[in-house]
Write a protein that binds this DNA or RNA. Sequence first.
DNA 1: CATCAAATGATAATTATTATCCACAAAGAT
DNA 2: ATCTTTGTGGATAATAATTATCATTTGATG
Lengths: 147, 147
Amino acid sequence: MENFSPEQRLEQMVQRLRDGDNRITPQRLAVLKVLAYSNSHPSAENIYSELVEHFPTMSLATVYKTIALLKHKGEVLELEFSDLGNRYDGNKPYSHPHVICTECGTIIDPSMHDLEEITKQMAIETGFKITTHRLDFYGLCPDCQSK
Amino acid sequence: MENFSPEQRLEQMVQRLRDGDNRITPQRLAVLKVLAYSNSHPSAENIYSELVEHFPTMSLATVYKTIALLKHKGEVLELEFSDLGNRYDGNKPYSHPHVICTECGTIIDPSMHDLEEITKQMAIETGFKITTHRLDFYGLCPDCQSK
DNA sequence: CATCAAATGATAATTATTATCCACAAAGAT
DNA sequence: ATCTTTGTGGATAATAATTATCATTTGATG
């Protein structure tokens, strides 16, 4: 998976919506921009409050709907947190590691790949004091595959 | 991290509560038993509905309170899912990989440790068709460490 | 520029979890 | 065994994030 610039990502997202016969409304474009340019893994609320200043007509529901659309098309990665709420990554919409501060909720992207050793590197690279991790694999179980 | 039998885990949990001057009530004991013996990563609701049959006085609030207590003491692992709701693992209350079916929500424990290669092994071992994974590290960021 | 399906926005509904509060019960002292 | 105290259970209200609803508005195509 290569990295794309925010400009490229925005263009990719827009194209993806066009291809799916989805309209490029000002509201959607605004949400896409935030997702493409932000590297802070914003929540829906974050996106909304950033936009509502310069776009008073914006509704939180629209943010959620746009995110749902992008999620469906694989153009945004959803990070699920029951306590922090969901956070979104539009820069790299594919599965990749994150480092989350359990105190302030900061989420950053480390740059790498293995595991017991990885955790140490992770700590060195990010300066975090890592206490635990989460590694889940998602897919279809045998029962569900045969349906 | 070694594995303990359900009996051992139950004893550990009970001991942990006793040490903390927490009372071992019938309700708590019942919740602990489910957590120690179940290997299906139950939700709070799952635990409640399993218990309420044979324990009509049980309240869902009590289940949540008991879980919170155990979580605080590190005796249960919370798996956060914004869509499935939280699920709990009392067998192995330490961080370890899971394999989750995105269709039916089944969660199982694989038996191993590494990552690109791991995903393949994971698929072979579990029969899942793995489409994505989640790898998060949790800890304190530099800012929060210095407070 | 007229059409019309699709999107917006305000709000209600839903769902999981947490907080509240009082009656009650567990564990230690008498 | 009974008393006492303090923690706990249970019913329910409150909270918070997300999703659904639906009347109104709007973007894109012919």
